[in-house]
Amino acid sequence: MFVKLWMTSNLLTVNSSQPIVEIEQMMRAHRIRRVPVVDEGRLVGIISREDLFRAMPSIFDPSITAEHLEQAGRITAATIMTSSLVTVEPTTPLEQAALLMRTHKFGSLLVVQNGHLVGIITETNIFDAFLEVLGTKKDGARIELKIDRTPSAFYAMMQVFKKCAMTVLGITVFSDFSDEHQLVTLKVQGKNMDRLIDSLWEAGLQINRLHTEGKEQE
């Protein structure tokens, strides 16, 4: 999967000459934690709520004067924005985006194409993709198999599901489960569960765990 399938495209943006007082009001009204800074369609920076908190004087600070507040009202986005950005493209693999977010401890990444902002990918988007891949939103049984770390073992496994007319809703592979085995987890749907289980054992495929209808078996 790629970023373009899961990114959010409709974004609120500001420009670099916009006063941060306006930006703070907009972010508070829309309950967002960060906003991209865009000039003539091109991404030039990003502003977070933390950036605003550092730049704006607190009304609860007794040392703040009216002059300080007036000066704060003249501060623009260009003054406080972060311009050195880590971005991805729409064609970036989703797992690469997730790794970048994990490495840099980001909650999101801006998506850029030819210098132009086209979207944002967030932790929530990543979770949604993860749930979709696992087939979480659809009814079915989850089967965890230990199979040999060979292409032929994976092919033999899929042939069993085909023979039993089972629909595969989601599949994940833990290829480094052990030196001898890979761990394959499948979400499947069909009327031939008993036949499927027998066929998997007959094919020499070890069922590590089976979860169906709220019950889990090992």
Rank of each mutant, 00 (worst) to 15 (best):
L134T: 03
Q159L: 08
R102W: 10
F161L: 04
C164N: 13
R195D: 15
S108M: 09
D198I: 15
L99T: 07
V133D: 15
T172M: 08
L110Q: 05
I147R: 00
E123W: 05
A55R: 06
A165K: 14
L94V: 07
M26P: 05
H68W: 12
S83F: 07
G140D: 00
I197V: 15
S84R: 12
L196Y: 09
V14K: 06
L183D: 05
A129Q: 04
L12W: 15
D179K: 09
E70I: 12
R102Y: 08
H104F: 11
T76K: 05
A129W: 07
V118W: 00
L85T: 02
T13S: 14
V35S: 10
H104P: 07
M81C: 00
N114E: 05
L43Q: 01
E132L: 10
P19N: 03
E218C: 00
M1L: 13
A153N: 01
A98V: 13
I59F: 15
E95I: 09
I20S: 02
G214P: 04
V3D: 00
D128P: 00
L109K: 09
L134A: 06
I197T: 12
Q96T: 14
T172P: 10
P90D: 03
T79F: 11
K163M: 11
R209P: 09
G45F: 03
D179P: 00
T185G: 06
R102S: 11
V112L: 01
I75L: 07
F2D: 11
M27Y: 01
T124R: 14
L210A: 09
V160M: 02
N192T: 14
I59V: 15
I126T: 11
N192E: 11
D176Y: 13
S152C: 07
Q25H: 05
I32M: 10
T79Q: 12
K191C: 02
I64R: 07
D39H: 01
